Computed example of a mutant assay.
Amino acid sequence: MSSVKQLVVVIAMLLLAVFVSACATVNPQAQVKTVTLAKTGETVYLFHGGNKLAKEEFCLNDLVPVYRFYYHFNNITQRSEEGTVKITGYEGDHFIKGVVVEGRIRNGDIAIKHSGATSCMIIVPESERE
């Protein structure tokens, strides 16, 4: 009976070695990082989620600065102004349509009015993507 236990242990260890080596030999898949940018003259949408205050503060023909936020390990947030968007209209209940006047704006950047009370997330439509 002792030899049967030893045989089972040896087979289990061999199988474990095979499984571990099989995981190590699989090549990692290439990670594709796409950065979605909108350049001067391209259309973007500002998502406000149906906030009535946003519809009141973001008026037609307003020039709104757009910021990119950088988050650090110790919860210190820095932001940099990346460009300006001119409000051109409203799209449904949740979006404001705008045109990039200056800068290069990414998907996920934040448009903030100078009062700071309201902000909108930038969405670059599929047709405008690089």
Rank of each mutant, 00 (worst) to 15 (best):
V44L: 04
L63N: 15
A38E: 03
V66E: 01
A38I: 07
T84L: 08
G98K: 00
Y90W: 13
G49D: 03
E126M: 09
G103Q: 04
N75Q: 12
T43Q: 09
V99L: 07
Q78W: 15
A30Q: 15
S115C: 12
G108T: 08
S115I: 06
G103H: 00
V99F: 06
G83D: 02
C59M: 14
Y70E: 08
G103P: 00
T77N: 08
Y45A: 01
V9Y: 13
Q29R: 11
K97E: 06
G89H: 05
Y71S: 13
M121N: 03
Y71Q: 03
G103T: 02
Q78A: 13
R129D: 01
R104M: 11
Y70W: 09
V66L: 05
T40Q: 11
E56T: 02
L63D: 09
M121H: 03
A17N: 12
A111Q: 00
E130A: 04
N27Y: 14
A38P: 00
T88A: 00
C120D: 07
F47E: 07
R79W: 11
L46V: 02
Y67V: 01
V26S: 07
C120F: 08
L63G: 13
I11A: 15
V35F: 09
V18D: 09
Y70C: 00
S21F: 11
G103L: 01
N107K: 00
L46Y: 09
V8P: 03
S127N: 12
V20P: 11
L46C: 03
D109K: 08
K86Y: 02
K5Y: 14
R79F: 09
N75Y: 15
A22W: 10
E102R: 06
I76Y: 06
I110M: 03
E130L: 06
T77Q: 15
E102K: 07
Q6V: 12
D109T: 12
R106G: 03
G103C: 07
R104W: 10
T43G: 03
I110K: 04
V44W: 10
Y90G: 05
L63C: 12
F47S: 03
R129G: 01
A17T: 13
A17Q: 09
L60T: 11
H94Y: 10
I122H: 00
G83F: 09
